[in-house]
């Protein structure tokens, strides 16, 4: 009976608990759900530390909360466990090149925050097939990762155009590249960024190409568990602040001198003139200063992680530079 009472109390107590920020502050670090290994987005460097585009956004959140970018525990999650890990509270935030879609936003107990990368689905094919358009792939065997939006896009696109294909599912990016290299499949489809990065890992990268045709919109965004509005706003505004900082040309190097700037936009960004509502986020008024000083603005994060791999910004340019990166005003 005592055991029973304890269990009942425990379950009640667990349900009352839904303030992620208090949780995180008490714990002393955030738990960030990441990709195990995706070149450019999440890898381990020679010193054994996690680096990458997705990693930097975990670090940015840490900077905003703890004024230090290193208070992060990285939890590798795979395609299957990522949403459950988030909705069950195993991780506080998911920064794992995950596509934002209505289905996922409404049906899984998770909420998306802000888009930090605009991707699109493309195809990796050997040059010798001389593929000019996707319909040339009629009859091909195509490798695809199960449980991804790319699997659905592939089926949608090919069936609506009556192009025949045989899907072969492969559990991970690495396995897919091996299967493709061994000619188990004629083409491999996933997000263009992943293909462009991975083509260099093939034995003869020059014999292969990533098709220009894009068959889907893949806005990759950070996600949090539903039900904690404050936490969702924190993550959202951390992402946007990096974009806004790039727009205002505030970067890691000049952020300290920018503190003296008389530009009201920059003064608001760096918390020199405190904003009304910022207290409600539960963060320091100058949290963006720490994000920029310790991690950098969006452009810097992109340049550091993705530019060396030959990825160009395409849609990820700022809005005033022909891209889609646009932050609501910080005021």
């Amino acid at each position: 009976m005592i055991i029973l009472a304890i269990i009942l109390l425990l379950s009640l107590w667990m349900n009352l608990y839904a303030d992620t920020l208090t949780d995180v502050k008490a714990r002393g670090f955030i738990r960030c759900g990441i990709h195990e290994a995706l070149t450019g987005f999440s890898t381990i460097d020679k010193k054994g530390e996690r680096i990458g585009f997705d990693i930097d956004f975990c670090r940015a959140i840490s900077s905003a909360i703890f004024q230090s970018p290193d208070k992060v525990k990285y939890v590798p999650v795979n395609i299957k466990t990522r949403f459950l890990a988030l909705s069950s509270g195993t991780v506080d935030v998911l920064s794992r090149n995950t596509t934002w879609s209505l289905d996922r936003d409404t049906g899984l107990g998770i909420s998306f925050t802000a888009i930090n990368f605009y991707d699109g689905q493309s195809f990796l094919v050997p040059k010798k097939f001389n593929i000019k358009q996707l319909s040339d792939l009629n009859g091909a065997t195509i490798c695809v990762m199960p449980g991804t939006t790319t699997e659905l896009n592939l089926a949608d696109y090919f069936s609506s155009r009556k192009i025949k294909y045989t899907p072969v599912v492969v559990e991970s990016l690495h396995q897919a590249m091996v299967a493709y290299e061994q000619k188990r499949c004629d083409a491999f489809t996933t997000d263009r960024s992943a293909l462009e990065v991975n083509i260099d890992l093939l034995k003869n990268p020059n014999d292969h190409e990533v098709l220009n045709e894009i068959i889907s919109k893949e806005p990759l965004a950070l996600a949090v568990a539903s039900g904690d509005e404050k936490w969702r706003k924190i993550v959202t505004w951390v992402v946007w602040s990096t974009i806004q900082a790039e727009e205002l040309e505030v970067d890691m190097r000049n952020v300290d001198s920018m503190k003296l700037s008389k530009n009201p936009k920059i003064m608001r960004l760096l918390g020199t003139t405190p904003l009304q509502g910022i207290d409600n986020l539960g963060l320091k008024p100058n949290f963006i200063y720490f994000v920029i000083a310790q991690v950098g603005n969006y452009g810097e994060i992109f340049k550091r992680n993705l530019k060396p791999l030959g990825l160009s910004r395409h849609l990820n340019h700022l809005w005033n530079n022909g891209g889609l990166m646009y932050s609501p005003p910080i005021r």
């Binding site: 349900n15 065997t141 699997e151 899907p167 568990a225």
Partner: peptide, 29 residues
Amino acid sequence: SNLHLHISRQNLEFGFDFLLQRSGFDIGD
């Protein structure tokens, strides 16, 4: 009961109606 509470707290629903929906993916083999 704990499961039930958590499911409703996370705005999830429990049911098998979705099995009748269009799957949207092909299986090769």
